[in-house]
């Protein structure tokens, strides 16, 4: 059961004001509960929560390296099993650690079927090192390694479909969630932790510093991502998509124009073709997952 009142991620951490990842950490721990061992990959969350000796974690927590969280978690799970212990193992890693550098360890660990929950807080770039692109960076986002310029509209590559990749490994439970829907997020974490085997939850966690918006907008922007169809909340049980969050879709432009990482699509001149391409990504999402609520014509 989700215990909304429990606080396992403490005050005093050094995240930016309005940080989506910090909120994700708090909410995830409410879903996971106190009988949890957290394994963090190197990244923003690890750094803002654990400068020695000021840990923000009230549960047992371990950080080793950037790319090995799922291998470390494999060892912890094996050890707990041998000791006959009941704690749950939860990995917290950013999208860089998950989509890119950690892939080999993740693939191995999911293939082996360890009983853990892998949570990717997805802020769509390497925020800790200064907003470089990752495999989770969306099309046309300007980052410090995929900058927009006189002959570039930013990141040319599509966002990798990690949930599908991990479902293909046989993960019994895969879900996407957003900090904009805390109750849904907490429930999904609780379900993932309760499900035996390697589970994956990818949490959309906007980054005000990296995306270029004011901290008070974090939830509003996360909501817009869902409402435009650029982020889809769903579950996959044994590889089958279910419980898709349906919306009355808004044009992607409403999401894009809120963030500096997409500013080059509007200034100095509006880039209709690029915006149309991003709209087509949302349209494909809508078709693939069936997110559209059909309104009756008046």
């Amino acid at each position: 059961m989700v215990d909304k009142a429990i606080e396992l991620f403490d005050c005093g951490h050094r995240a930016c004001g309005g940080c989506g990842a910090a909120l994700a950490a708090r909410l995830v721990m409410k879903g996971a509960g106190k009988n949890t061992i957290v394994v963090s990959a190197t990244g923003c969350m690890e750094v803002f929560s654990t400068p020695y000796p000021e840990t923000a974690w009230k549960v047992p927590w371990i950080h080793s390296l950037f790319e090995n969280a799922s291998a470390v978690a494999s060892g912890i799970e094996a050890s707990l099993k041998m000791q006959g212990r009941e704690e749950k193992v939860v990995i917290m890693a950013g999208d860089g650690a998950t989509f890119d550098i950690g892939m080999i360890c993740i693939s191995g660990a999911f293939e082996r079927g360890h009983d853990f929950t892998y949570i990717c807080y997805d802020n769509e770039a390497y925020m800790n090192t200064g907003i470089q692109r990752s495999g989770a960076t969306p099309y046309d986002a300007s980052t410090t390694t995929s900058p927009s310029g006189s002959c570039s509209f930013g990141n040319k590559l599509p966002k990798k479909d990690m949930p599908q990749i991990l479902a293909a490994h046989g993960a019994p439970y895969v879900a996407t969630a957003s900090i904009a829907y805390p109750a849904d997020l907490m429930q999904k974490i609780e379900k993932a932790v309760r499900t035996k085997g390697p589970c994956y939850v990818q949490v959309h966690a906007p980054c005000c510093t990296g995306w270029g918006f004011e901290g008070e907008q974090t939830i509003a922007i996360a909501k817009l991502a869902i409402e435009t169809g650029l982020w889809v909340n769903y579950e996959m049980v044994d590889g089958k998509v279910s419980k898709v969050k349906k919306v009355v879709r808004k044009p992607v432009e409403e999401y894009l124009k809120t963030q500096k990482r997409f500013r080059h699509l509007f200034k100095p001149t509006r880039q209709d073709a690029e915006i149309a391409h991003i709209q087509s990504i949302a349209d494909k999402n809508a078709e693939k997952y069936g997110i559209d609520i059909k309104l009756k014509k008046e």
Binding site: I62, S64, N68, A71, A73, I76, E77, A78, C105, G108
Partner: peptide, 15 residues
């Protein structure tokens, strides 16, 4: 790389 990482986790967990 995963071998020693898994040992690291198992050792920290008490094995």
């Amino acid at each position: 790389f995963s071998a020693l990482s898994a040992c690291l986790g198992a050792s920290a967990a008490g094995s």
